[in-house]
Simulated assay, not measured.
Amino acid sequence: MFKRLRRVRLNSVVRNLIEENSLRVQDLIYPLFITHGENVKNAVASLPDVYQLSIDNALKECAKLSQLGINAIMLFGIPSLKDSIGSEALSEQGIIAQALCAIKEKFPHLLLCVDLCFCEYTDHGHCGILNPKLQSVDNDLTLEILNQQALVLAKAGADLIAPSGMMDGMILSLRQALDDAGFLHIPLMSYSTKFASGYYGPFRDVAQSMPSFGDRKSYQQNPANRREAILESLEDEAQGADILMVKPALAYLDIVRDIRERSLLPLAVYNVSGEYAMLKFAQKAGLIDYERVLIETMLCFKRAGADIIITYHAKEIAKLLNGI
């Protein structure tokens, strides 16, 4: 009883001194969706304040991010043409290769992270080359084009590569391909535990990556499985991943904690589009104290064990932390 009363009487200075977790602007990565054209800024109804941007507008956005102290971005591409193998992702003239060159030239201090996958680039919306008999992704053929995509992006100036397709053996394959090409210095942030989740809906609107048939359950994690989710991340660590990731974040904080307790690698969470949209629409409806809930959510990610937070809220968080 005495200890309980003593805690209640702590003043704010002491409370801050013993705070166990904190949130910093440096913890954040902001996703950008890049499309072809000039002066393009396409809004997406399901994802408020997030846009498809042409490279010229992406450069303007990078200037704003830099002013807020956000120094890491994650690039996603929206190609002009889609086909069965995602050919634009394999081209040195692809949209993300072009964006990397342009951003690196003007903002050399930014950490340029790239999502490595084919779902945005294929006409079928799946994450690689299809096996027609299985009507699902051919894992080994997809590894071959993932390696090609990674080398294109590394040559264009990517600082960090984040493979998201959940292919078996992708980290080992990518690490060898990058090392053999002289890119030993480029780290891999693996989407090591990525669930087949319903929280991705708005992302698929902005990235135009909805599967044309079926779903991705054959290569993404079952939300019901805890042990398998842990094993997936530990396997990617063994293959050479530099950073692990759990996606989505909010509904899977138990998995974040499980992995944190089993690995010493840096750990990222992706605060995905559905999580973001829920808070934004709750704010619009006047249902929550938005700023308070936003910071509380981010602190929960940190408390669970995340070092890095990929989030569409990054600009809002930076303004709050900077007192703007």
Rank of each mutant, 00 (worst) to 15 (best):
P266C: 01
A45P: 04
D242H: 12
E235F: 14
K315F: 03
K64R: 09
N57G: 01
Y121G: 05
F213K: 03
C101T: 15
G125H: 08
K3V: 11
H185C: 04
I78G: 01
L184A: 14
R24S: 10
E120P: 03
L59T: 00
R303G: 10
V40F: 01
V40K: 00
Q98I: 06
C119Q: 11
A150I: 09
A158C: 15
Q149A: 15
Y30A: 10
V272W: 05
I85Y: 07
A97K: 10
E105F: 03
L28Y: 02
D123Y: 04
M170P: 05
S212R: 06
K319S: 06
Y191A: 06
F118Y: 12
D138K: 07
G305F: 00
A318I: 09
M166C: 13
L188N: 02
A224V: 13
S164L: 09
L151S: 11
V293Q: 14
A251K: 10
Q135F: 14
S173W: 14
S66H: 08
H313Q: 15
A306Y: 07
Y270M: 04
F281R: 13
P108S: 06
G128H: 08
E38V: 12
S197P: 04
D168R: 15
P187W: 07
K3M: 15
C127E: 11
V40T: 00
N222G: 03
E105D: 09
A314C: 08
A158T: 11
S212F: 06
P48S: 02
Y200C: 05
D242A: 07
A99C: 08
A249C: 14
F118D: 07
N42G: 03
K60E: 08
I96G: 01
D258R: 06
N71A: 04
G169I: 11
Q93L: 03
T193M: 04
A99K: 01
K106S: 07
T122H: 02
A251D: 12
V293P: 09
T311G: 09
E316P: 08
F118N: 02
R7T: 13
R4C: 13
Q52L: 03
Q26K: 10
N11D: 12
L17E: 09
P266A: 02
D205I: 03
G198T: 15
P266S: 00
V246F: 00
R226M: 10
E291P: 12
A314M: 05
D242T: 08
E144C: 15
A241R: 04
E296R: 13
N225Q: 14
I145H: 10
F195V: 08
L100P: 05
S164D: 09
V114N: 06
C62G: 00
E237K: 10
P248L: 08
L53V: 02
D242K: 05
G214W: 11
L143D: 12
I186K: 08
A282C: 13
A282E: 11
I255V: 14
Q176E: 13
R216G: 09
D168Y: 14
S197E: 02
L100F: 05
P223H: 11
F33I: 01
G274F: 05
A314S: 15
L320I: 15
Y200W: 11
L267M: 01
L130C: 12
A306Q: 08
G157M: 04
F33P: 05
Q135G: 09
C300W: 12
K64F: 06
A45H: 14
Y51F: 03
N11L: 07
K106M: 04
F213M: 02
K60Q: 03
I295T: 14
E228M: 12
R4Y: 11
Q208A: 14
K247Q: 06
L111C: 15
A158P: 12
C113A: 14
